[in-house]
């Protein structure tokens, strides 16, 4: 474990128990986030990346439940040495302690800013509320902070926006407002849940630059979730590749892109169009489709679609996430023999 990490997720398990069966949405995920670092979590839809961050924030709703593992987080108020971790997994998700961390030390930038803002409350109302939840200040002062932050993220004439409603703003502007909201209490960790999927490409680039800049100025760490490897290449320092609730591979962005170890990572990278690709040549795709969560295969979750599938091995045992080389870790029997204990 990285001793100066501000967040260390260890073997996190989140399940959804329903009449039809139990879904292991997150099944033993581990990764670290160092201060000031941008960690990108990448995977197809349904791979459990969103549930992972909801678990960290402890806002997973019934029938979902964090059932195991540790979420070690170092809030601001504690010292900087490695011992003052709070295990968020042990806290009551609705309790006071967790609530003072949420929105204060860890902030969220949601996927769809339109849906994440209430249509019947003004932007100002929702910003001020976010400040006053964590700071004992009056409305005027809260409004000043809100306007200040909106200026910082490049919202034009922020004073007027305070009395506007979400549906009166453009998509890019709404996302900026969400970023301003996340920054209100100067969090140590910002979680961005596919913040660029709902906006067009040019605005996307602006938002990414903005996030990068803010991360430097505020010395925050960022967990960045996306299914877009191109975005990961632009913003992330470290990459976590997820598939069906498990981490397939993790490591620094350069290593992952230039020396992918896991067949899934290779397949993902292979499906990105590049300038060097011959035109009119079909892009390689990953064969088959993601299995239904109730029908998870035994063994390595990726084996039914894997090009390097080893019968009798991959479908029997689940490979553990093991360190290979200096920075990279991978869970694949092609690279090590360590299996998950059952």
């Amino acid at each position: 474990m990285n001793t100066n990490a501000i967040l260390s997720v260890r073997n996190l398990k989140t399940r959804f128990t329903m009449d039809e069966g139990t879904t292991k949405a997150v099944d033993g995920v581990s990764f670290d986030v160092a201060p000031g670092q941008v960690v990108g979590i990448v995977g197809e839809s349904g791979c459990g990346k969103s549930v992972t961050i909801k678990s960290i924030l402890r806002i997973v709703q019934k029938p979902g439940e964090v059932v195991g593992g540790e979420i070690l987080f170092r809030p601001q108020r504690h010292g900087e040495n490695g011992t003052d971790f709070v295990d968020l997994a042990k806290l009551d998700g609705r309790g006071k302690e967790m609530r003072t961390i949420r929105g204060n030390d860890i902030a969220l930038i949601p996927q769809e800013p339109m849906a994440a803002l209430s249509p019947v409350h003004t932007i100002g109302n929702q910003l001020v509320e976010a400040v006053q939840l964590h700071r004992k200040i009056n409305k005027r002062q809260a409004e000043e902070i809100a306007i200040e932050r909106m200026k910082e993220v490049g919202v034009p004439s922020p004073e007027e926006r305070m009395s506007a409603y979400s549906w009166e703003l453009s998509g890019g502007l709404r996302q900026r407002v969400m970023i301003a909201m996340a920054l209100l209490c100067s969090p140590r960790l910002l979680i961005a849940d596919e913040p660029t999927t709902a906006i067009d490409v040019t605005t996307q680039a602006q938002v990414l630059n903005l996030l990068r800049g803010l991360q430097k100025n505020h010395d925050m760490a960022i967990i960045f979730i996306t299914h877009d490897l191109g975005v990961i290449a632009q913003v992330a320092d470290d990459v976590v590749v997820m598939y069906l609730g498990r981490v397939m591979e993790t490591g620094p962005v350069d290593d992952i892109f230039h020396n992918p170890l896991h067949p899934y990572t290779k397949a993902l990278l292979g499906s990105i169009p590049s300038i060097h690709t011959t035109s009119r040549e079909p892009l390689p795709t990953i064969e088959g489709s993601i299995p239904h969560p109730f029908n998870r295969p035994a063994g390595c979750p990726f084996f039914p679609r894997c090009a390097a599938y080893m019968p009798g091995k991959c479908d029997r045992q689940t490979p553990k996430l093991e360190r290979i080389g200096e920075h990279q870790s991978v869970s694949c029997f092609l690279h090590h023999e360590v299996a998950e204990e059952i």
Binding site: E287, G288, S289, P291, N295, P297, P304, A307, Y309
Partner: peptide
């Protein structure tokens, strides 16, 4: 043959569907 292989591996999941 690879495609076939994958189809066999996924067949079990599809019957209900």
């Amino acid at each position: 043959s690879k495609t076939e292989n994958i189809e066999v591996r996924q067949a079990g999941q599809r019957e209900d569907a």
